[in-house]
Write a protein that binds this DNA or RNA. Sequence first.
DNA 1: CGATAGAGTCGAACCGGTTCGACACGTCGA
DNA 2: TCGACGTGTCGAACCGGTTCGACTCTATCG
Lengths: 345, 345
Amino acid sequence: MVNIGDVARAAGVARSTASYALTGKRAVSDEVRTRVRQAAMELGYTPNAGARALATSRSNVIGLLAQFLPDEFAPAMLQYLQGVTDTARDLGYDILLSSDSDGPGALKRITDSRMVDGVVLLNVAEDDDRLPVLRAAAQPGALVGLPRDCTGVDVFDLDFEEAGRAMVEHLARLGHRELILVSQPEHVVERGGAYVWRLQNAAVQAAAAKGITLHTVFGAATQPDIGRDLHALLDAHPGATGLLLNNEAAAAALPTVLRTRDVETPADLSVIGRYSDEFARTFSLPYSSIESAPDRLGSMAVRQLVRRIENQVPEGDPYVVRFVHPELVDRGSTAPPHLGEACEP
Amino acid sequence: MVNIGDVARAAGVARSTASYALTGKRAVSDEVRTRVRQAAMELGYTPNAGARALATSRSNVIGLLAQFLPDEFAPAMLQYLQGVTDTARDLGYDILLSSDSDGPGALKRITDSRMVDGVVLLNVAEDDDRLPVLRAAAQPGALVGLPRDCTGVDVFDLDFEEAGRAMVEHLARLGHRELILVSQPEHVVERGGAYVWRLQNAAVQAAAAKGITLHTVFGAATQPDIGRDLHALLDAHPGATGLLLNNEAAAAALPTVLRTRDVETPADLSVIGRYSDEFARTFSLPYSSIESAPDRLGSMAVRQLVRRIENQVPEGDPYVVRFVHPELVDRGSTAPPHLGEACEP
DNA sequence: CGATAGAGTCGAACCGGTTCGACACGTCGA
DNA sequence: TCGACGTGTCGAACCGGTTCGACTCTATCG
């Protein structure tokens, strides 16, 4: 394998000069620079990543800690990955992917061994056991998901409170008086998925403020259970005119459920989900939804992380907790309630 | 950061001795070994990955080249990733993930810079432009997907020919005489997805051998197009009693289509798909299917790759092309055809 | 004209591991 | 008692980059 010494010899200069010519970290005469570049090109020189990392204590690699949970919806996870990898590549970083179920152990290994310059954590739980390890590490970290304690890390998440409010208020404005909210299953909450509560509590508050009845329930994460849940719910609350979904599986199952019941949206029922546009396309879901923007969140986390790695943050820049504003993507599944009934009397 | 020199000093031995004590590459007295281990433990020593890679020319990292294509079904892709990452971790390797759209460029970069000890390629096309780069690289490579030219690499794929035969013969045995095969969209084929042809050709041959009529068609990759396609197909071939699906989107859309048409499986129509069990669970698909085993394929590729990396292959071991046998997972969606009609006359 | 600044180059040291050859010591057999 | 051998340890070199300080040469200014 050709190394920088070979390049230097071919160009007739010292190793250090070749290095400066290629990295541009010191002034080099035009003539020497072109000679070195030429030699490097002809010999097919590529710097050895290990050696460079050793010398500079920078690897240009970002660690990505994901967990492929069986009840996570795969398409959403892949979108996070894509947001992270694409942005990292654009900024000149590679991605070291760990899906180790021993999150803390994997994190400690890749940070202590200096394989990575920084770390992005996905699926962050409220009391995530990776956080103590991350805080003890020498490298900066960025999270996708809001933990209880945000000290020492940059945090990015959807504004689930605002999402809950927006869902309720949107239907309230249309005149709805009784709504149902289907959340993620309870075990997601128990695992630390606080976002479920954040959305739900905000929705409950907003409903109370408007004098609206809101039924809340945890749905299953898989079919056919979630389908049964939805039928039972609609049976139990015949007066409800709006359905809010903070549960991907429920959204995916809903078309079949509504068809079976011969219920039309938005004529008979208004529906608002919370999922990404990509998700909506994959399952061809016709419901308006709060965009959860997984690719954008992944991208934001990487950008901030790289800023920290490269010390582009102002001296003593405080850590960031940034919420993405929930945009309501209108797919025409909401309307004023019960137009039919209103005509009856 | 604590390095091996610190450990050696704390244990009162030379750096080299500390290294031997920790790696076990030379005999060390029990007493010294325990002293070094103790010191390493107390100081919290972790070897520097870059330095080790530089010295040993081994990084213990495997490159994973995936392409997140918009028409790839996300859940399947995630399963490949999971198979690869899990197996790699078990064997002591980390994963460098690249989803760069410039596959050849990314591959050249990570191999030339010695960041990885070997490479796994996903989504391998028939004439994959990453293959020349891989063959020129110093590291071994394993593919998931069958290219035209397999020299210099280990290849793993589902036996799509056998899958096509098995689908047809299964329904033939049950007495079906007219079948429909829905393949992936044509642009998947054009991109080099030869597996579409492999399955289809084998199915056509098997049907001809049995004297069965087989209608073949490329389906769309997204809803609602694929739903329309399915309706049109069933309208066009009212005599068909069996439906074969080599198209994930078609499988996901089928329940809705059949419900609309008031068609029951297997009473009115027998159905066999080609997708993973995980996929079937995610979409709660009730159809028997050929298991495509993405996690297993990913795992096999990594295992073979690691064997090559660690030179555990017998001297001059030839490169491998291994097909996974397609298992038919019975979900009860096939039966003898037209029982109803048979009683009519 | 001499001091000085700046540009460009070089040699050497360093990053943190691994590994080779040499050496010291104790044991065994002749 | 001497030499051969095996075991355990050490020092030094090496992997392939980067970076610091020193040096040379030229241009500039007082």
